[in-house]
Each structure stands twice: as structure tokens, then as C-alpha cells.
Design a protein around this nucleic acid. Structure first.
Length: 845
RNA sequence: GCCCUGGUGGUGGAAUGGUAUACACGAGUGACUUAAAAUCACUUGAGCGAAAGCUCAUGCGGGUUCGACUCCCGCCCUGGGCACCA
């Protein structure tokens, strides 16, 4: 008997697959399409991670199943190859980043092929290819032309170690997401993208898509929509109002002072009116030096400075209010100013500290608490009932809000307003290895986009691309490249030397896969119409507020400007799911420094790709974090060997002739189990319950082994010792094949080579992965015999075998005759009998 | 502080109102072997018992129900996200 040799059969079938077009997505097909996508990797020098394997295998299983279900499947792969690690590595090794990238992508691709993933390699894309980033740049030009890209001086998060500006999303706990260095603040001119213009649609359109609920929630929280009102506070002695955004206009009657953020431009505009301006500006400087980390520390003492000489009027009470500045009020949220009252803990604390008068206007239901609140002993932040609020007294907070808005609006002092936490997207990076931003600055004409016919603006080939301490992009040192003619006046002008962030290339890659080589547009209209939107997109939770949000936004923009066919709809991904991280053994994160990284190559070498695939799916629930366990891999390998041996041992005759064969011993129980397994595996794949689909196949194989062993002991007719028909075996291989494709292919070929192939049945000539997904027989799944659970007072006391469809009366008759039950019931009175058909009977005594 | 997860054997986990612990790992015993590995068979939640069997166990405390890992209320803990957001 041939030994199971994964290396041999895996190489063999990979060669067959990748040299044929079985995995190729066909343009112009009449078949229904199915577009599956996994996040393309950043090709680091470390190679593939076992975490990649989890996501890629899962969608590979779905892709393979869809092909077997008759769909025209697009399951592509590419490289998100711009990025810092490559640049840093290149600097260290003195090689060009493009050379490193090529090396890394070659390595990744080889690894991927060794895992048997059914990617359509003819559609491979690479974000660092000028033919690709030509269109990334084109999108930027469109953003600029539509007023969504602008350059402005802002305080950016600056990583002193990477020497790069970071987007808010890239700062975690005040530290650089990549290297962990503490982020600093720096004022720089940066390109910004107005993603905030799309905040409402990015929330609203989540109703159109099928994303995991937690993904929707996280995106909504990140965008942070809150409904409230804009209130005007007239400034005494100046023709000006200070605007304040609030969600609690019901507390306006208790407002006794106003707080501006230290950077509020009112301070700049009225320097001469503020008597203690030096003190105020000093406070502003101090606030600037406090990192976001410290500024948002809740235990921190509240500080503030009064703007002496400035008085505003509360539009509701007409009373005079002093104006303060405090660093807990943020410049970039709402209007950068708040009105303060006794119904906010921070305001309350600040007023107590500086002796600012307070008043209350909301009372809780609790009498005792109300006294405390009125005596200013406790700060009540919740909603309640209004008092001290003129005609609104007695109203509940929620009822009062719209009424107060209408009342103040009639005086021109308020209006409803929706505010978002989402901020515009910092789009500049001061690095070499990224897409050049295709803009030209002319002293006379201002910023001008590069003429589209001159795209792409290619990265110049340079020797020095080390980031500079000044924060200028390394490209700025190349005078020959920087100096250009202004596209408008033809005078001397300068190229933008910043490059785009990592996320730029992945904003639109789903479109490119539909038409990867198009040189005239992003993608051909007919092709994107056919393939888009992506039917199922799987990726990491860590991209929910980054890549996923960005790419939804960019797609909406492209849709708005009709760069993609309108018929696709405004969302690029129909369905989004997410896999759990694979942790190191013991449940800690895998990292090079901890030395617990598992290299998929080693697992493939030792156990085979099919084993790795199976294990990655079997290890636990797909969406959950799971620690790696090399010991557990063994179990999957043993399962594969068991299948292998059983197949070869069984000496299967022609499955086609199964119906007439007298040699076959049909094991009905086994056949029933097979059909149950077909049903379960099919359904579990759709629900991404891969772990239970694997275990159900294991159960089937265990049962098969058992039935084989039994017949082995008393050999059946003519040496054909089988407990299952060849046709059923073929069905089993089909459901196994998405999980362990190489093994299935090999055994399929073996199965079909038997007498059947001589007759040349259609099935015999094709590969297992090209078969139709098997249907289960509904009738066969219905049990003939069942185990009826007998309970007394809800406790299991007996089990009886009975025919399916047994009626309550029949069941009662049987169990009341049973000696065991009789004893247990004894003298007690039977109060009630609950009967669940085919499952259980419960006697209540 | 707010939002989202999850809490079940020695371990990863299964069961979404009806037999708790499927499947796998590990451990133990046995078979084969000169031996080991591999493989196969059996045992494996805890306690009591010679056995039949009984009792107790799904983070903790209540509740609903004939019946609760599952539903409801309160609490504790793990992991993740957001966080002076007005």
C-alpha cells in the first residue's frame, strides 16, 4: 500500500492546477459571478504568517465550494507593497526598495502556492507597480478637483523614531502603531482628505450591507455621530457670537459660564480685549505641549484661565456669563467651545476649583438626591425633569430639547446640528517608498494637479532615500525631479515631495482585480459592472476603522463622480466578515522578540499543506482569537492518514455501477450519516463554522472505519469489503476537497481510474475540484429509529429506542409499562406529561 | 466611564430551550515490536459505590420554565474598541 506522501501529491496537484485555468475567473461568462476577497498582504521579509493562512484558507474553502456550485468565481490576490518596513530594510541593506519588494512578493507567492489556495494568479496586482499607482494618483487628482483634497498647516502626530507623520488612526495609546515610540506633535503642512463630508453616508449606508454587527458598531462609534444643537452666545460689546455645540440643550438654563478650547480663534481675534492675554497665551502654549495622552487622562487635575474682560450672554436666561479657557475642551470637536453648568462633572469640578457660580435646572426623580443636587453637593449628569427653566419647567429632558431648540431658533439663537467625531484624513507621508502625490506648487497659481496625461508621476530612482530629521520628504533633495513647469502658467514650480500613506493603494484595489491591466481607466465599465460589488470580503478587525472605512469612502467618491458604473450601488463590499487572530502557544501574541512565531513553511514541510489547512479551520471558532497548538496539528494529520488508508484499503469498485453491483454491501446507517455530514458541512461553511464542519467529517470517517473493521473481521463477498458505495465515497471526497484539496484530488483520481474511466464517464475525466457540490437526500436524513429520552421532573431517567413518528399515547403506553419507570413513579400522582415528538417525554410528578 | 466579545473537563472546544462535555489534543492501560516510534483497541468531568446506580458540576447570586450552558435581572472576571466628544 502506498504511503501517504503529502509532498509528492501536493506538488503534483499544484502543478496541475496552476498550469490550467481551473481557478481562472472568466470574463464575459454567462454564469452567475461570485467575487470573494481577502485582504492582500503587505509582503514583509518574514513571509506568510499563520494568521494569513486562517483567513485565506477560509475564503479558499468558500471559493472552491462556489465553483462546485456552478459560479464563475473571482478569488484574487495581490500585494500592498508600499510601506516603511521595506524602506527601512532597504536602507539597512543598501538595496532599492523595489528589489526588496520583488524578492518578498516572490517568496510570498511561492508560499501561497504551496498551500494550494485557488487564487486566480493571472489577476495579480501590486500597488508599487507604476501601472497600478498611476490610477491611485488619478484618484487623488479627482479628489483635489472635487474639493476633497486640501493642504493645510496642522498639528500632526509625529513619530520621532519612524520620522513620519501619523494619521489619528495610527496612534494607539499615544504611541506610534508601528514602532511604539511616543508620538509628538508637530506643526506641518499636510495634504488632507475630507472624509468628514461622507460621515453621514458612511453611517447610513451600513444599512445596505451585510457586515458582522460588531463591525458596523465599531465603524459607527468611530464616526461618532451625535445629534444636538448649535447655540449662539452673544458677546458683550462686540458684534459677535460664540457658537457652542451641545447635545444637552435641556441644561441651557443652568449654564453659568463658557469654556473655549485653548486654540479657539476667538482668542486670536480679540487679543486686545482680553485683559490677561499674556496669561491666556501662556496657558495655550502649555496646553500645546501636553500630549493627547496626558490631556485625555481623566485623573488629571482640571486647569483653566479666565478671559478677563470678556462677557457673554446666556441666550436662554439673558444673564451674563464669564468666559474661560481650559484644555479639556478640544479644538477639533463641535465648535471648540462649550457652555458649562452644574450638570457636567468636568464643569462642576472646574467651577468648584475656581469659585465660579453654579446653578442647577435638572432634577432626578429621587427626592433625597434632588436635595443634594440643589445644594450642589453632587453633580447630576443624567436626564431628569426641568426646573428653573421658565416655561419648560416640569418637562422631561428628552421632551424639552426639541422645544427649547424651536424657542431659541425663533430668536435666531439656535439651530439643530449633527456633529461627528470623525476627522479629516491626513494623507501626506514624508517618505520615499510610497505613491508620489501628483501635485505641483506654483507661487503664482497655487497648487495645481499634474495633468492626467502625465500620470503616473513615477518615483525617481535615487540613492538616498533616508527620511530626514527636518521632516521633509527625502524626495525634496532631488532638485532635478522637484523643479517642474507649472501646468497652468508654465513658470517655474515645484513638485509635491510627500508621498501617500499605505492605505492609498488599498482604497480601490477591489476594482482593479476586475480588470488588472487596463491602461485607460481604473477598470473597464462592463467588467466592473459584472464583477462588482465584492460578494464576500474577509479581513482583520484591526482594519475596521482604517482600511475598511477608507475604502468605503473612496468607493463612494468614485461612485459619485461616476468613475464606476452607478448600477453597482454605493457600497464596494456586500458582506464583510472577520477572523480571530492566531496567537502563540500559551495565548500570547506571536512576535519575533518572543520567539514564538510559527512559520507555515515548517508545518507544510513536516505535515503537509492539507494538514495545515485543516488544522487552521479546526482549531476553534473562526471569528475567535485562538492560541496555536502544534500538538493539535497532529490530530489533523492523523485524520488525513485515516482517510487515505481507508480509501486504499477499501478496494472500491466502479461507483457508476454501484446500483447494480451485488458485491456492494450498503451500510444504511453509514449512508445516512454521510448525507447528514453533507448537509452539515455545506451549512457550516456558509456560517463560517469551519471547526464543526471538520469535526463532522471526522465523525463520519470514524464511523466508516468502524464499519470497515467489522466487515474486515468477516470478509464479505469476493474480497470487496466495503461498508459504503463508491458513489458515496465520491460524494465524501467532494465535501472534503475544499478543506484538503490535494488529498481529495489524489484519491479522486485513484477512484476514477478504476474500471469506470474505461467507459469514459464525464465525471472521470475531470478533477475533484470541478465536480458538482453534492446534494443530500432529505428523506435519508430523517431517522427511522429514534432514541426517546424519558425524563421524570426534568431529569433523564431512561432512554428507549422507538420508531420515528411515535405518538404521545404510544410513547406513554411504552414507558408506563417499564419496570424502572414504575418504580421511580411509585405512589406519586402524575401531574402532567410533556411530549416532544421524536425527542423526549417528561413526566411531572 | 461607555460600547462590543467571551467565561463549559487537564487543554482547544461542541451543544441557541429538550441526552451537557461531540470532535481533537493530552494522559492512562493493553495489543503488535528485541526495543522505540508509528498504528490499533479500551478508559478518561468530579464524588460515593462491589455493582446496578446515585449525587454534584457550564464564572457567581437570583428569576422564568415540566425542563436553562442556552431566556430575563443583578454582580465578578478575561479579551477588544472608544474615551475630558460637550
Amino acid at each position: 500500500m502506498a504511503k501517504y506522501n503529502p509532498k509528492k501529491i501536493e506538488n503534483k496537484w499544484q502543478e496541475v492546477w496552476y498550469n490550467s485555468d481551473v481557478f481562472k475567473a472568466k470574463n464575459g461568462s454567462k454564469k452567475k459571478k461570485y467575487y470573494l476577497m481577502v485582504e492582500f498582504p503587505y509582503p514583509s521579509g518574514d513571509g506568510l504568517h499563520v494568521g494569513h493562512c486562517r483567513s485565506y484558507t477560509a475564503l479558499d474553502i468558500i471559493a472552491r465550494k462556489r465553483r462546485m456550485q456552478g459560479y464563475n468565481v473571482l478569488y484574487p490576490m495581490g500585494w500592498d507593497a508600499f510601506g516603511l518596513p521595506t524602506e527601512n530594510y532597504a536602507i539597512k541593506k543598501g538595496a532599492h526598495p523595489s528589489v526588496i519588494t520583488k524578492k518578498n512578493t516572490d517568496y510570498f507567492k511561492e508560499q501561497m502556492k504551496r498551500l494550494g489556495w485557488s487564487f486566480d494568479w493571472s489577476r495579480e496586482i501590486n500597488t508599487t507597480d507604476p501601472k497600478y499607482y498611476k490610477w491611485t494618483q488619478w484618484i487623488f487628482v479627482q479628489l483635489f478637483k472635487n474639493g476633497l483634497a486640501y493642504k493645510t498647516k496642522i498639528d500632526i502626530n509625529w513619530c520621532p523614531s519612524c520620522k513620519i507623520g501619523l494619521a489619528n488612526e495610527e496612534v494607539i495609546d499615544g504611541k506610534c502603531e508601528r514602532c511604539g515610540a511616543k508620538a509628538e506633535k508637530r506643526e506641518k503642512e499636510q495634504w488632507m482628505i475630507k472624509i468628514t463630508n461622507y460621515a453621514d453616508r458612511l453611517i447610513k449606508d451600513l444599512d445596505l450591507v451585510d457586515y458582522l454587527e460588531k463591525i458596523k458598531i465599531q465603524q459607527k462609534d468611530w464616526i461618532g455621530e451625535s445629534h444636538g444643537a448649535l447655540i449662539k452666545f452673544p458677546v458683550e460689546g462686540v458684534e459677535e457670537n460664540i457658537e457652542v455645540f451641545t447635545t444637552r440643550i435641556d441644561t441651557v438654563f443652568s449654564g453659568t459660564f463658557l469654556i473655549l478650547s485653548p486654540g479657539h480663534n476667538f482668542i486670536d481675534k480679540h487679543k486686545n480685549k482680553i485683559e490677561n492675554i499674556d496669561e491666556v497665551l501662556k496657558y495655550r502654549e502649555e496646553a500645546k505641549n501636553i500630549s493627547d495622552m496626558d490631556r485625555t487622562n481623566q485623573d488629571k487635575d482640571i486647569t483653566g484661565v479666565q478671559l478677563k474682560g470678556i462677557i457673554v450672554k446666556n441666550p436662554a436666561t439673558n444673564e451674563e456669563m464669564p468666559v474661560w479657557t481650559a484644555d479639556f475642551v478640544l479644538e477639533h470637536y463641535g465648535t471648540g467651545a462649550v457652555f458649562a453648568d452644574a450638570h457636567d462633572k468636568r464643569d462642576f469640578k472646574m467651577a468648584k476649583k475656581y469659585g465660579i457660580p453654579l446653578r442647577t435646572s435638572i432634577k432626578p426623580d429621587d427626592e433625597l438626591l434632588t436635595q443634594k443636587v440643589k445644594n450642589l453637593e453632587e453633580c447630576f449628569e443624567e436626564e431628569g425633569t426641568l426646573y428653573n427653566s421658565m416655561q419648560f419647567d416640569g418637562l422631561k429632558s428628552a421632551e424639552a430639547r426639541p422645544k427649547i431648540i424651536i424657542w431659541l431658533a425663533s430668536k435666531g439663537l439656535a439651530q439643530p446640528k449633527i456633529s461627528y467625531k470623525l476627522r479629516d484624513w491626513v494623507f501626506s507621508r514624508q517618505h520615499y517608498w510610497g505613491e508620489p502625490i501628483p501635485m505641483i506648487f506654483c507661487k503664482k497659481c497655487g497648487w495645481q494637479p499634474v495633468d492626467e496625461k502625465y500620470l503616473p508621476v513615477e518615483l525617481p530612482n535615487v540613492k538616498k532615500y533616508k527620511p530626514t530629521d527636518t521632516g521633509e520628504s527625502p524626495l525634496s533633495l532631488i532638485k532635478k525631479w522637484v523643479d517642474v513647469k507649472c501646468p497652468k502658467c508654465k513658470g517655474l514650480a515645484y513638485r509635491e515631495t510627500d508621498t501617500m500613506p499605505n492605505w492609498a493603494g488599498s482604497n480601490w484595489y477591489y476594482l482593479r482585480y476586475t480588470d488588472p491591466k487596463n491602461n485607460k481607466e481604473l477598470a473597464d465599465e462592463a467588467l466592473s459592472k459584472y464583477w462588482m460589488p465584492v460578494d464576500w470580503y474577509n479581513g482583520g478587525m484591526e482594519h475596521t476603522t482604517l482600511h475598511l472605512l477608507y475604502s468605503r469612502f473612496i468607493f463612494k467618491f468614485l461612485w459619485d463622480i461616476k468613475a464606476v458604473p452607478t448600477i453597482i450601488g454605493p457600497e464596494p463590499y456586500k458582506k464583510r466578515t472577520s477572523h480571530g487572530m492566531v496567537l502563540g502557544e500559551g495565548g500570547i501574541k506571536m512576535s519575533k522578540s518572543k520567539g514564538n512565531v510559527i512559520n507555515p513553511d515548517m508545518i507544510v514541510k513536516q505535515y503537509g499543506a492539507d494538514t495545515l489547512r485543516l488544522y487552521e479551520m479546526f482549531m476553534g471558532p473562526f471569528e475567535q482569537m485562538i492560541p496555536w497548538d502544534t500538538k493539535g496539528v497532529v490530530g489533523c494529520r492523523r485524520f488525513i492518514e485515516k482517510v487515505w488508508k481507508l480509501f486504499l484499503k477499501s478496494q472500491i469498485p466502479n461507483p457508476k455501477s454501484q446500483t447494480n453491483s451485488k458485491f456492494q454491501i450498503q451500510n444504511n446507517e453509514l449512508k445516512r450519516l454521510l448525507h447528514k455530514t453533507i448537509k452539515k458541512v455545506g451549512e457550516d461553511i456558509e456560517a463560517m463554522k469551519f471547526n464543526t464542519s471538520v469535526s463532522s467529517m471526522m465523525e463520519f470517517v470514524n464511523a466508516w472505519q468502524k464499519s470497515y473493521d467489522m466487515q474486515d473481521k468477516k470478509p464479505a463477498c469476493n474480497g470487496y469489503a466495503v461498508g459504503i458505495a463508491g458513489r458515496d465515497l465520491a460524494d465524501f471526497l467532494k465535501i472534503l476537497s475544499p478543506f484538503a484539496p490535494h488529498l481529495s484530488e489524489e484519491l479522486w483520481a485513484d477512484l476514477m481510474k478504476k474500471p469506470a474511466s474505461a467507459k469514459g464517464s464525464g465525471e472521470a475525466r475531470e478533477m475533484c475540484c470541478q465536480q458538482k457540490w453534492p446534494k443530500y437526500d432529505e428523506k435519508l436524513i430523517e431517522e427511522e429509529n429514534i432514541t426517546l429520552i424519558v425524563q421524570i421532573n426534568g431529569k433523564v431517567r431512561d432512554k428507549i429506542n422507538a420508531k420515528a413518528g411515535l405518538s404521545q399515547k404510544e410513547a406513554e403506553k411504552i414507558i408506563l409499562k417499564s419496570e424502572k419507570i414504575k418504580i421511580l413513579i411509585g405512589e406519586s400522582e402524575i401531574k402532567k406529561i410533556i411530549f416532544v415528538p421524536n425527542k423526549l417525554i417528561n413526566i411531572v410528578i
